[in-house]
């Protein structure tokens, strides 16, 4: 039974959300990237973040796994909770946070070496001493990169196609078995055929993970997500079930954006 069935949906809404932000404001030096954003991500749901370029989509994703604080000059106010616990409390180890809330960047840098080296990096960082090959195989299978068998492990990452690279970066994150998957622009820089195949992969992962993704392509948000958040100039203007937001937006700016009339 899928987590998105009607029955569990109501139950999920009562339970503690897996991620929540309350009054989140993020600044980079003088520039304010997010202003007073409050949002809840229920467990098992797929949430899309849409909005014009520069509206703070990536910043919101990055604040969910404490990746903004590695940018010099950034500062943050507000509270983010992960399964009810303050993400920034002293007991939270940022490295552990990032293992449990995995993120695939739009600019997904390949690590030097083979595909296996790429997958093993995160596992070794965690101190994993078990069957690295087994874990890597499972992750590559989940990401749809195992069709040609084990030889993919020894392939140099730099020799992969754009689509395979994207899949490998997803596999790199999946290997750590995160609770939440953050994906920034899952299909940017891919040609249409590859984009639709990667989209199917995200669709397949919906059953196993809570997913939050940011996209410039709102039709993609419509195809993939249960809930959609509309960000505009760093403010969360609207958040709700994707169906409702697309067919009956409450905020006129949301409607302007969706219909391509935003000034």
């Amino acid at each position: 039974m899928s987590a998105r069935d009607e029955g569990t949906r109501t139950a999920g809404a009562e339970a503690v959300p897996v991620l929540s932000a309350e009054g989140l404001t993020v600044r980079f030096g003088e520039r304010t990237a997010l202003t007073d954003v409050s949002i809840e991500i229920p467990r098992g749901y797929t949430v899309s973040i849409i909005g014009p370029a520069g509206s703070g989509k990536t910043t919101l994703l990055r604040s969910f796994n404490r990746m903004n604080e590695v940018i010099p000059g950034s500062s943050q106010a507000g509270t983010i909770r992960f399964a009810g616990r303050n993400l920034h409390s002293a007991a939270m180890d940022p490295a552990e946070v990032r293992r449990r809330i995995g993120m695939v960047f739009e600019d997904a840098a390949l690590f030097p070496g083979s595909v296996f080296d790429n997958l093993a990096f995160g596992l070794r960082a965690r101190g994993e001493e078990g069957d690295l090959h087994g874990i890597a195989e499972a992750a590559l299978q989940a990401a749809g990169l195992w069709s040609e068998g084990a030889e993919i492990l020894e392939t140099r990452a730099g020799d992969l196609s754009a689509e395979e690279r994207r899949r490998m970066c997803i596999a790199r994150t999946l290997a750590l078995k995160p609770d939440v998957l953050l994906v920034d622009e899952p299909t940017s820089t891919l040609d249409p055929a590859a984009a639709s195949r990667v989209e199917s992969l995200i669709h397949a992962l919906r059953d196993d993970y809570t997913i939050v993704f940011a996209t410039c392509d709102h039709t993609q948000a419509g195809r993939l997500s249960d809930l959609t958040a509309y960000l505009d100039s760093g403010r969360l203007l609207e958040y709700g079930p994707t169906q409702t937001l697309f067919t009956n937006p409450r905020n006129p700016r949301t409607e302007f954006y969706l219909t391509g009339r935003l000034q």
């Binding site: 009054g23 903004n68 604080e69 590695v70 940018i71 010099p72 000059g73 950034s74 500062s75 943050q76 106010a77 507000g78 509270t79 920034h88 180890d93 940022p94 490295a95």
Partner: peptide
């Protein structure tokens, strides 16, 4: 409301 300073991501406590 709490404010967090940016850090370099070094976690001296943990390891």
């Amino acid at each position: 409301m709490t404010a967090f300073r940016s850090s370099t991501g070094a976690h001296p406590r943990s390891d």
